[in-house]
């Protein structure tokens, strides 16, 4: 299993802040995005190819090539706007 976290606009538009997901078939972040996009509706819209999505694996900035491992904490969020 991996732990998925969603923040800010993503959390609101998806209506979920966290979920557990079986890692089977997900070798990297790119695989995960394809899987989530396949859920349709807000998922397809937010994670479409042309959308800016920031991601982190175990609280480190990641990209589509970052590999996934059992027990990882994975976060998906819109571009940050602090400061």
């Amino acid at each position: 299993m991996i732990q998925l976290l969603f923040f800010a606009r993503f959390r609101e538009e998806l209506g979920v802040d966290a979920e557990q997901l079986e890692i089977e078939g997900l070798s990297c972040m790119g695989d995960l995005l394809v899987r989530l996009r396949g859920r349709g509706d807000a998922w397809a819209r937010l994670f479409a190819e042309n959308q800016r999505v920031m991601m982190a694996v175990n609280q480190e900035v990641a990209d589509r090539q970052t590999p996934l491992h059992e027990g990882d904490e994975v976060a998906l969020f819109p571009p940050v706007t602090g400061g």
Binding site: F7, A8, R9, E12, M54, A56, V61, A75, F77, P78, P79, V80, T81, G82, G83
Partner: peptide, 19 residues
């Protein structure tokens, strides 16, 4: 900090709330 640290602002304006 402005482009890497995971903070997000949501503002309440005269037109309502927005990220």
């Amino acid at each position: 900090l402005k482009t890497k640290a995971p903070f997000w602002k949501r503002e309440t304006t005269s037109d309502g709330e927005r990220w």
